[in-house]
Amino acid sequence: MNVSEAVSRRISTRAFLADPLPETEVRDWLTAAQRAPSGGNIQPWRTIVVTGQARSDVISDIGSVLETFPEGQATEHPIYPPDLWPPYETRRRRVGIMLYETLGIQRGDLAGRRTWFQRNFEFFEAPVGLFLILDERMGHGQWGHAGMYLQTLALLAEERGWGTCLQECWGMVRPALKTHFALGPGEMVWCGMAVGKPDGSHPVNTLRAERANLEDVAELHGFP
C-alpha cells in the first residue's frame, strides 16, 4: 500500500472486531509514528495506550462521570468553537445526518442517537484505545504538530490493516481522565483514538464523509 492509497482508504472506523492487537505490533506502530513532523523537533505529544483491563477501567470510570454530567465536564478547551459558523457547522451537521442515516436511526430518535453516541466512550468496541496527552503550556503550533502525529498514526494503522477513529469526544471528560491517569498538573488529554481491525460487515463502516471541492478550500497563485 502506498501513501495515496492509505489516505484514500482511511475512514473513521466505528465498528471493530474483537481480535486483540499484539503488544509487539503496537510498539512497532508507535515507534514508526515517531517520524511524524515536529517543528523544532519538540515532539510535544505523549500517548497512553490501553487494552484489556486497563481499557475496561477507563470505560467504567468515565461511564459513571457521564451519568452525572450528560453534557460533559467543563473545560477550557472546547471541542469546537462556540457558535460554529458556516461552512464549518454545515459540514459538521451534514456528516452527523449521514452517520445516522447509515445506521438507520431516525432524526427524531433521540434515545437511539444517544445510545450510539455513548459507544464513543467504549472505543466502539475496539480492543485498543489511545489517548494523546499535551502540556497545556504548549502553543497552537505544537497542537498542530500533535495533529500531524495523529495523522501519521492513522495512516500507519491503515498500512497494517487496522482501522482507527480519532475521538475528540473524550475532551468532554478531560478532568475525569486527568484524574484517572494521574496526569501532571499541566497535562491534559487532547483526544482519543480507537484502534483495531475493522468489522467489514457493519454498515457504519461504509460511511465516507464528504469533502469540500478543491476550489472551496484552496487558491493556486503564479502557475502558468
Rank of each mutant, 00 (worst) to 15 (best):
S4F: 12
L110I: 11
V26R: 13
S201F: 08
A212L: 12
F117I: 09
M98T: 13
Y80V: 13
R46H: 11
R35P: 00
P198S: 10
A36P: 02
G63I: 01
R35V: 13
L103R: 06
Y100L: 05
L134Y: 05
A182S: 11
P86L: 04
A218N: 08
L214A: 14
V128P: 00
R14F: 08
F117D: 14
L99M: 10
P86Q: 09
S8E: 15
R91A: 13
T102D: 08
P44W: 03
T47M: 08
Q142H: 12
A36L: 06
K197N: 02
E5N: 14
M1Y: 08
T115V: 09
R9Y: 00
W45P: 01
S38C: 04
I79D: 00
L155C: 02
P20V: 07
L177T: 10
I62E: 02
A154H: 04
A15L: 13
S8A: 15
M138S: 10
P37S: 06
G141H: 06
Q53W: 01
C165M: 14
E5C: 07
C191V: 11
T51Q: 14
L153R: 08
P81N: 03
D135Y: 05
T75Q: 06
D216R: 13
Y100R: 07
G147Y: 04
T164N: 03
Q34A: 10
A33M: 12
L207A: 10
R27V: 06
M98L: 14
Y80L: 14
D109H: 10
R107F: 08
A15F: 12
I62L: 08
F121Y: 10
A111I: 14
R208L: 00
G108D: 13
W85G: 06
L220E: 09
W170T: 04
Y100G: 05
G186H: 07
R160M: 11
I133A: 06
T164D: 03
G96P: 04
G52T: 08
L155T: 01
L214H: 07
P203F: 02
L177K: 11
M172A: 13
P37D: 07
F16Y: 14
A154M: 15
A157M: 04
R174G: 01
W170N: 04
A33P: 08
A157V: 05
L130E: 00
R94W: 07
